[in-house]
């Protein structure tokens, strides 16, 4: 699979837009959610929706840092598209009676930390850091969460919505991997080393401190839902496989770091990694909500209503 032409991709993105209004949220089928599924699905959807929203914010940061005008525009669209996914997932939750009135579901504490970090520091991160983390999360989502959801939920409206969401995601991945390769290409060893310099940046370390527990926490939630752990790991392996398919991709040090980290996550026996991170997940559950600053105002843009 050769790298894609980003200019053509932008045209394709623009012509593939859809809106919540394209879906009939009141169509029959909502009752196909079983009573047993309902509470777990509610927690799952809330996480999923927040992950989309966090992905949106990451794309917003990437748009600011994009090296070309085309990429800037692509990321601006992806920012909006992730928001659209979050909105659509909220509309599903509304359909399934999972929203209390107009309330946006509460994000779990690990997401809350990631939101906080994104709001403070994402714009200052070099584009290749987010440019590698985001495809990783997208693979995990696309490959595991969404397909799992579709396997367990029979509601046709859910399928219709995720058909559209997955179409968008395939474009996100295409661009994500292409950019990772671009960053590995035609860079000298010294430049590649410099790309890793931000690792020493305390702001990034903070980010890592919120990202690692999020992954483990997600893993826990998913298994709660009955997703075989193996599915998530397969998806993460896919990241390593696609990202490393070309020499350029493999040269990107951030690909190396993230995919190696992915291997840690997958390997449950790696106590060296999981013991502290799982501990972190536990510890974070004790952070009092009051200790966190108010949610940033971009969070308030979420809505399940097709028309405003």
């Amino acid at each position: 699979m050769a790298s894609i032409d980003l200019d053509k991709m932008l045209v394709k993105i623009k012509s593939s837009q859809w809106a919540l209004a394209d879906i009939d949220w009141d169509a029959p089928g909502a009752d196909l959610i079983t009573d047993e599924q309902w509470p777990k699905l509610k927690a799952f959807m809330a996480d999923l929706m927040w992950i989309e929203h966090v992905g949106a914010r990451a794309f917003a940061a990437m748009a600011k840092k994009a090296p070309t005008e085309t990429l800037r525009e692509i990321y601006t669209y992806f920012h909006a598209e992730e928001q659209r996914h979050a909105n659509a997932e909220m509309a599903l939750m509304k359909r399934w009676g999972m929203l209390d009135g107009d309330e946006i579901p509460e994000p779990n504490i690990n997401l809350r930390l990631v939101i906080e970090w994104l709001d403070r520091y994402a714009d200052e991160m070099p584009v290749y850091v987010l440019g590698t983390v985001v495809p990783m999360l997208e693979v995990a989502l696309d490959g595991a969460l969404c397909s799992f959801l579709l396997e367990t939920v029979d509601d046709p409206v859910c399928h219709a919505a995720f058909q559209k969401i997955n179409d968008d995601e395939s474009r996100h991945l295409g661009v994500g991997f292409t950019v990772m390769e671009m960053q590995g290409r035609s860079k000298t060893f010294i430049q590649l080393t410099q790309m890793v310099a931000p690792l020493l940046d305390p702001r990034l370390i903070l980010g890592i401190a919120s990202y690692f527990p999020l992954l483990n926490k997600m893993r826990d939630n998913i298994m709660e839902m009955g997703l075989p752990e193996e599915k998530l790991y397969n998806a993460m392996r896919k990241f390593e496989k696609i990202g490393g398919r070309t020499a350029d991709g493999r040269r990107n040090p951030w690909f190396q770091i993230i995919s190696r980290h992915g291997r840690f996550v997958i390997n449950r026996n790696n106590r060296f990694y999981h013991a502290p991170v799982d501990a972190l997940v536990k510890v974070t559950q004790y952070i009092p909500r009051r200790a966190l600053p108010a949610v940033p105002s971009w969070v308030k843009e979420l809505t399940y209503r097709p028309a405003a």
């Binding site: 623009k14 837009q17 859809w18 809106a19 919540l20 209004a21 601006t76 669209y77 909006a80 598209e81 928001q83 659209r84 909105n87 659509a88 843009e301 809505t303 209503r305 097709p306 028309a307 405003a308």
Partner: peptide
């Protein structure tokens, strides 16, 4: 949000919402 299109009642933007 980037504008996708105008509809009968307003403006559809890429976050999937129709602003009327």
């Amino acid at each position: 949000w980037p504008i996708d299109r105008l509809s009968e009642q307003g403006i559809r933007t890429a976050e999937g919402i129709e602003h009327q």
